[in-house]
Design a protein around this nucleic acid. Structure first.
Lengths: 120, 120
DNA sequence: GAAAGTACTTTCCTATAGGAAACTATCTAT
DNA sequence: ATAGATAGTTTCCTATAGGAAAGTACTTTC
């Protein structure tokens, strides 16, 4: 007799799996959490500010990731009518709902590093 | 005058960024959370059980991801002396410390889906 | 002795992620 | 006029992720 899935076949598990896939598809990649974390600290930063704050990122990735985040309503982009024009990026209210995840992830990472390398 | 990073230059931010990178390097990829989530529900599952439970995964990825997770002490692998041999995978105590993150992520994903598609 | 179940590994392939460097375009200060 | 700041885009390249399919090896059941 051929076995079928049992655990993940329940509706509640299917929903959770789907939800995790959804979340990860928005948040995966090397830079998203860094950008979101920086904007949570920084409130309204320009493109060049972010480029300076996030060590290692290049213009292409920053530009692309900001577009992704904006499309998913996690970050807002505002063009200011200054001379020369400046652009301000900020985290949206919806983006702020990610802060528990980011905090959990950061705390877990800190304790993991302690566990592996023994203190800091 | 050239500007430097200010926000992320603080030691506490550097620590958090490092921690997030650490965590993501262990948990990134399409299948890790699915595997961990399934093992949290299932307590001790064989390779074929996991293959059945996790819809869409293939043998190569399952094998590779399990090795990664085992190496990082999030999952344990036990060969049982049965005939034919069977292997049981289980989540470790350390792996269980990820459950708050997985829960947060799942809940966030569920509310995101509601917000985007309006109810389920 | 053939089928089917256990647990994988290996090979081959494509798609995506991500980095470096150059380029566009506008404006300000010297 | 030139340097430097704003905010990106475009091109070219490589590395990694991930999937499909076949193969390995052993054992039990029919």
């Amino acid at each position: 007799m051929k076995k079928n899935a049992e655990i993940n076949a329940t509706p509640v598990c299917q929903l959770r799996m789907q939800a995790i896939s959804d979340a990860m598809s928005l948040l995966s990649g090397k830079w998203k959490f860094h950008i979101l974390g920086t904007l949570m600290e920084g409130h309204k930063l320009g493109f060049m500010d972010l480029l300076r704050e996030i060590e290692g990122i290049g213009t292409k990735m920053l530009s692309k990731e900001l577009q992704d985040l904006e499309m998913n309503n996690l970050v807002s982009r505002t063009v200011l009518d200054t001379k020369p024009i400046t652009v301000k990026y900020a985290i949206t209210d919806y983006g702020k709902t990610l802060s528990p995840i980011i905090d959990e992830l950061a705390n877990w990472g800190i304790s993991y590093r302690k566990a592996v390398y023994g203190k800091v």
